[in-house]
Design a protein around this nucleic acid. Sequence first.
DNA 1: ATAATATATGAACCCAGCTTCACCGTCAAT
DNA 2: ATTGACGGTGAAGCTGGGTTCATATATTAT
Lengths: 212, 212
Amino acid sequence: MKQSQKLSRRERDKLRQRQEIFAAALELFAEKGYHNVSVNEIAERAEFAVGTLYKFFDNKESLYKSLMRERADRVHQALSKALEEGDDEIEKLRNYVRTKGSSFKEDAPVVRLYLAETRGVNFNFEDDLHNDIRKQYEKVQQKLAVVFKHGIQKKLFNKIAEPYLLAVTLNSIITGFLFLWLEQPEENMYPENPNTILDILFKGLLADSPNA
Amino acid sequence: MKQSQKLSRRERDKLRQRQEIFAAALELFAEKGYHNVSVNEIAERAEFAVGTLYKFFDNKESLYKSLMRERADRVHQALSKALEEGDDEIEKLRNYVRTKGSSFKEDAPVVRLYLAETRGVNFNFEDDLHNDIRKQYEKVQQKLAVVFKHGIQKKLFNKIAEPYLLAVTLNSIITGFLFLWLEQPEENMYPENPNTILDILFKGLLADSPNA
DNA sequence: ATAATATATGAACCCAGCTTCACCGTCAAT
DNA sequence: ATTGACGGTGAAGCTGGGTTCATATATTAT
């Protein structure tokens, strides 16, 4: 084999083509969702004939799966690494937050797909429904933000972040816990006592002995 | 009209049937996702003929939309109300957390659909891909939990919750912020500085003057 | 140059599944 | 009993789109 150095010209070409197909498919999937993208569309965007795609993948589903697996690998790898670097735990957490942010921002299309899988996405219906629900949801979130705002004004709460961001935070935590419960209702129940969740917000994680 | 008291027998029947169709559809959608449920299936589950469904709804999409709108309304209404009740802000937040939990637990199928819309869903492919990704994700989350555990052991962190729950929390917050960014990259950027996010965990929200 | 082989093409095929509609069965009114 | 109206039925039609494969083109070997 002429693999002495690496790959034959043919093989490299094939690999590059594969990547091109992935890129095209990713754009489309991220934009419109798996079911709203046709194989013909992907082929067109990738500048191949449909038949060619089937030289690379058994079928649409397998194309999608390969794509997702490859990308998810990368992200998870980066996250694991981030947690291994840094001297103390605080530094590790900083790394993690930064990495998760940047590795996602780097290519937004993957974000959408990634979140679609781990936390979901709008499989869009030209979206009037979706927008309506979002709007309702947003209204509730605004009200929640007001509660935080008042709490801060009354000096009941410390202003550790903008009220709206606190609202986003609380909703995120609740959603996270609900997911836990959804996946394994027995093991992780959604806490009966709201304080279990609220304490995470209320109490500071950082031991203040070093600070105070 | 004999609406003197309410609805005619006919009308009540129709309404009940409509609800039955909704119930059947909801089960299936929640279980398998919109695209993997056929109208025939819904009809079968609801014990009607397909044709009958089309007496109630223009088409599949409209059935889905009506269903979603109705349910989402309920949830949002309940949440808004929760925020209005309670004397102080702490009480309001408790109400909110409790309501979001219980109104969702009440019927798990809606949860899945609701989260599908606000935060996404697994449109499942008999799920080997999904499971793999979840497993990877879970591994990272475990590593993150270890960081919290060590931090607590070193007394760097207060044990405000179990390490694993802290990991879930941090991931949830990050995801929440990423969503914000995804929706409107200009207005809400994902914080450059990881401390913006971490401070929410690190610093206590509750002003401790009243306690200490 | 020519043959042999590998690769790309896209029109045609085929089917899942949404939708329609001609036909029942039921019940109330006559 | 007969009629009419109305709700329910499900086989058949139709279509979007995933998949195939006979053909065309490019590449390599002789």
